[in-house]
Amino acid sequence: MTIGGSNHTFTFLGLTFNLGNMISILLACLIVLALVYGLSRHITMKPGKAQNVLEYIVDFTNGIVGGSVSGEASRMLGLWGFTLFLFLLVANNMGLFLHIDVSGITYVKSPTSDPVVTMTFSLMTLMLAQYLGVRTLGYKQHFENYLKPFKLFLVVNLFEEFTNFLTLGLRLFGNILSGEMLLTMITGMATGGGPVMWVAMLPLELVWQGFSVFISCIQAYVFVTLSSVYISQKIEIEEV
């Protein structure tokens, strides 16, 4: 599943777990929590440095969510957008700085370079959209939206739902995986080809790492933006 090594999996209660993913996810969660905890000390009316940073992030994610979702739902989704953005930001970048393989088995990497993780996030977005759709419009309205503009569109709408689910998860997975894969390849070339190769590969690695950080941030932003767009489509009555 991951580059440069196989996974350590185990089965528990009939469910298959990947230890590498679990460690990476937990680590990402802890980093996010530590970051937010550290920034949210001493919250005052007149903001300090840390509070300013935190408020900027809050404003930023609120802006992403509020850009497509409006009104009361936007306030409700603020926390979700904030958490999702920070988690993806950290998770996407984690593997670029920290990649731990022990005897061929990966233990720490970007959790989002695994399709299972990204598809899970995609699925969560989908479920949230369905739940909010039913909650705001009611069952009847919500499912009638699938029959618009006319009944035959049900097929198209359902297919669109499925492709939304797939593209949302796979886009993120593909971007992060490709970044990590190339990094691993460059590292492999550097360590395998002697000191000259090592020196020659250093700037390349540097450039690719910088580019990957850029891509990672963009993908976190894109994921949250698209998620809120999908949700906004579900909580509004479709214009015919």
Partner: peptide, 18 residues
């Protein structure tokens, strides 16, 4: 090899984080 456990783990950890 669908890591259903991972999916559950991601969801639960995300909710706890939130």
């Amino acid at each position: 090899q669908l890591y259903t456990g991972d999916m559950l783990f991601v969801m639960i950890s995300f909710l706890i984080l939130m």
